[in-house]
Amino acid sequence: MASSSRLKPGEKGKIRVEVNIRGKFGNIMKTVQVHTNDPQRPQTILSMKMKIKDLIHMKKYKAAEIFSGACKICHVDRGRGRKGFDLFINDCMMCHNTAKSASPLAALRAKNKEDVERAIREGVQKTSMPGWDARHSGPLFEEEIRSLIDYIRPVSKVGQAN
């Protein structure tokens, strides 16, 4: 609320806005409309944004840490026994989606196939993308890796055999 609802010419004041974020998660945008007797602009919009993280995710981690400890309950186990689309939704989409930390599926599909394959197997240096291939100490085996590549399989280069 405003410190005072009336300001003299030249006077300064503050509008205090409190946002209740209990139980909220991810990217949040909030606005407040201010109605005044200013004839030029009777309504002004104030906006606030934030990214809400739980305590676990406030720290910085090495990419491969999602495969171990308590992290894997959410980051690996949900995709266990699944393939392709199903696996992607459970283990990849929490990062690879619009307004999340990594490129959404459509953007991955616009990449070339070799880069997609290498990223999934070996991870991407200096990012939170770990290598998922069991040969690079990841949790996924050949069949699962292949199913992901086939699912993401870049569609932009139709007609190009590879």
């Binding site: 004041g13 503050k14 205090r16 806005v17 946002v19 209740n20 974020i21 934030m50």
Partner: peptide, 13 residues
């Protein structure tokens, strides 16, 4: 994640 966050917007007439 906490209960609430607060901000003061500075205004002037």
């Amino acid at each position: 994640q906490e209960d609430k966050v607060e901000h003061f917007f500075e205004i002037e007439n």
